[in-house]
Design a protein around this nucleic acid. Structure first.
Length: 106
DNA sequence: TTTCGGGCTCGAT
DNA sequence: GATCGAGCCCGAA
C-alpha cells in the first residue's frame, strides 16, 4: 500500500484534478505539475499522468489540454496517442512547431 | 519488503 | 538547445 497520503486525500486529489480539467476553457493548456499544484498536491505530476491514463477512451474530459512542463506532448512522437492529442490540440488553435506547443498567432 | 515502471520535473553539464 | 541524473509518488509485481 502507498502510505504517503490517505485514501481520502487521494480521492480528493482525483476529484480536484477532474474539476480543474472540467472547468478549463478552449485554448488553455497546462503541465502535469501545474494541474497537481492547482489541485493542492504539488509534486504529484506523475500521479496526474496516471489518472489521465485511466480515463475511458470516450471521456468528455479535455485530457489533451495537459502536456509536460516543456510544453511538449508526453508521448512518443508519431504514436497513436501522440497523434490523437495533437489533433485535438490543433482543433483548439494550437500549433506544434519542432515538437513544441505554440498558440496560434503567437 | 523491495524493486520497477509510468502521459513528470528541475537543475547541472 | 540536448542529455543526464536525481528526485518525486503511487500501484503492481
Amino acid at each position: 500500500m502507498g502510505n504517503t497520503v490517505t485514501n481520502q486525500a487521494m480521492t480528493h486529489f482525483k476529484s480536484q484534478v477532474f474539476l480543474i480539467l472540467h472547468q478549463s476553457q478552449v485554448g488553455e493548456c497546462f503541465s502535469y505539475g501545474e494541474i497537481a499544484t492547482l489541485a493542492g498536491f504539488p509534486g504529484y505530476a506523475r500521479q496526474v499522468g496516471q489518472l489521465l491514463k485511466k480515463l475511458p477512451k470516450d471521456t468528455k474530459l479535455p485530457w489533451y489540454r495537459v502536456v509536460n512542463a516543456q510544453k511538449r506532448i508526453s508521448f512518443i512522437e508519431g504514436s497513436e496517442a501522440y497523434l490523437r492529442q495533437k489533433e485535438r490540440l490543433e482543433a483548439e488553435g494550437w500549433l506544434i512547431i519542432a515538437g513544441k506547443l505554440k498558440y496560434k498567432d503567437q
